[in-house]
Each structure stands twice: as structure tokens, then as C-alpha cells.
């Protein structure tokens, strides 16, 4: 599958990354190459094979329902570029 220019720009927009035309041209080739490389896997017959979800046989770890975290509002907003009364402050976002 070829990744065209429009797809590159679409992905960039979804990722909120500005991509110049020069960059888009480069990504077009790189992304197409990656996809084509992965597409080789389609040659393998995987009928009836369960997708692999783990390397070693193990179950997902579960926790008990206990409150043992939080209460660290200072730490949570410590790196925020802008904050007020422990809120993150961001440019106005209203739909």
C-alpha cells in the first residue's frame, strides 16, 4: 500500500504535528516503505492462529479496590506551564 501526500497530512493533523511540504514528501516515501515491509507478513498463512498477546504465559495483574494514591496535587501540576489553585490552565477550549 502506498501512503500518499493527503494521508501523510491527515495523520499529521490527527497527531497535531505541523508538517511542511518538503517533510511530507520525505514521509510519503518512508511511511510507504514501512507499510510495504510490514505487508510481507500477509504472505504467512495465519488461519486458525490466535494473535499473540504475551511472550510468557501469564495473566493480567489485578489490584484490590483500595484508595492508596492521590493527595499529591502539588506534584501533579508541578510541571504545568501555567496553573492556578492546583488547576492546569490551558488556552480556552470550548466546542
Amino acid at each position: 500500500m502506498k501512503v500518499d501526500r493527503a494521508t501523510v497530512q491527515h495523520i499529521a493533523r490527527l497527531a497535531r504535528i505541523t508538517v511542511s511540504d518538503d517533510e511530507a514528501a520525505r514521509f510519503e516515501g518512508e511511511l510507504s516503505g514501512i507499510i510495504e515491509w510490514v505487508e510481507q507478513l500477509e504472505e504467512v498463512d495465519t488461519d486458525g492462529v490466535e494473535p499473540m498477546t504475551r511472550v510468557v504465559e501469564m495473566a493480567m495483574t489485578q489490584r484490590d479496590d483500595e484508595v492508596n494514591d492521590g493527595g499529591i496535587a502539588d506534584d501533579i501540576v508541578a510541571n504545568a506551564p501555567e496553573k492556578a489553585d492546583h488547576f492546569f490552565v490551558v488556552p480556552k477550549v470550548v466546542e
Binding site: 489485578q62 483500595e66 494514591d69 492546583h86
Partner: peptide, 30 residues
């Protein structure tokens, strides 16, 4: 393990997992 209580003061019921700090991993509540 942060509390679900309604009406807490801002960001007081937030763990580093909830704030998506790098390297934090989710562990499911049974």
C-alpha cells in the same frame, strides 16, 4: 489507587498514572 469521591479539591484525587506521567503503568481494579 486514587479516590473516586465526588467533589474533591482540584487534582487532589489524581495519581501519576491518571496524569499520564511518563513510565506510569495501569493496573486494573478487580
Amino acid at each position: 489507587g486514587a479516590s473516586t469521591e465526588f467533589g474533591g479539591s482540584p487534582n487532589a484525587q489524581v495519581s501519576l498514572v491518571d496524569a499520564a506521567m511518563p513510565g506510569m503503568l495501569p493496573v486494573i481494579n478487580r
